[in-house]
Design a protein around this nucleic acid. Structure first.
Lengths: 135, 135
DNA sequence: CCATAAACCTACTTTGTCAATAGGAATATG
DNA sequence: CATATTCCTATTGACAAAGTAGGTTTATGG
């Protein structure tokens, strides 16, 4: 299984916020209740989203979270990568990896490169807007 | 990362055997040396392949492993699944999973189904023969 | 016929990640 | 100023990944 709860919860969190922020901030507690996810664990997930500048926040009473751009500008692949790290199906294709010494006669390299490609291309074609109800 | 060493080593093992079995059996030791994989660990991997009836074996001196059909009949997806289990990108899509109670208004279900599909379709289109040198 | 080379078997270890839980500190508001 | 929120640090339990260790069984070829 390649997508952990972090990636899945993050997407659901963003979609839920997108659907419920009319103009104000959406508190984590509400999202956790609607999505049936532990508040405490969701905090950890959301921290990553904030760190990656995918959300605006406001502390204190009346506070919560808010998207900082329109849903069309949230690419699904980018969201997943923010949470999970590189999506490469095998370690040797991860960015910043030095070339494997066997690569010149590796029979499987191009297989994995192709797999990497179809996964990336697929996920890159969707945005939050595509996943929202009313869209 | 979705493909562990088990899946990758298994594929490399099968390709190596395919390329070196003229008529006889190929000993694990030789494959381990050529592929630079620990013999002991490779044993564990190969045991799964034997269990899945992807290899014939012969014990004792002069023994080893041998494919039991032509390379064109070894589907890459089937090999990977034998080693890794279901390739589903998220748990709720694994076979035999009861439907998630949230599925009827899950905004992400069809995203994951589509991802599952592109991965499966991609891997299912290759066979061992495609990965062999001389093919 | 028997030393040898091979597959086969059981158990253990180490390391890391996943999925949380716990308990509080800082901050803004109504 | 009580309250509702985000923010922060630490800990836990379960599990899997990747390998290591040490042997037993089986067939062959010299």
């Amino acid at each position: 299984m390649m997508i952990s709860t972090k990636g899945r919860y993050a997407l659901r969190f963003l979609i839920d916020v997108a659907e419920h922020q009319k103009d104000g901030f959406v508190p984590l507690k509400d999202v956790a209740a609607r999505q049936e996810i532990s508040e405490k664990y969701l905090e950890i997930v959301v921290k990553e989203l904030v760190k990656g500048r995918l959300l605006d926040t406001l502390r204190g009473k009346g506070g919560g979270y808010r998207l900082n751009r329109p849903p069309e500008e949230y690419n699904v692949k980018a969201v997943i990568e923010q949470m999970e790290g590189p999506l490469a199906p095998v370690a040797c294709l991860e960015p910043g990896q030095e070339a494997c010494p066997r690569s010149k006669d590796c029979r499987t390299l191009s297989l994995w490169q192709g797999l990497d490609r179809v996964i990336s291309d697929y996920l890159a074609q969707f945005t939050l807007a595509d996943l929202m109800e009313e869209y």
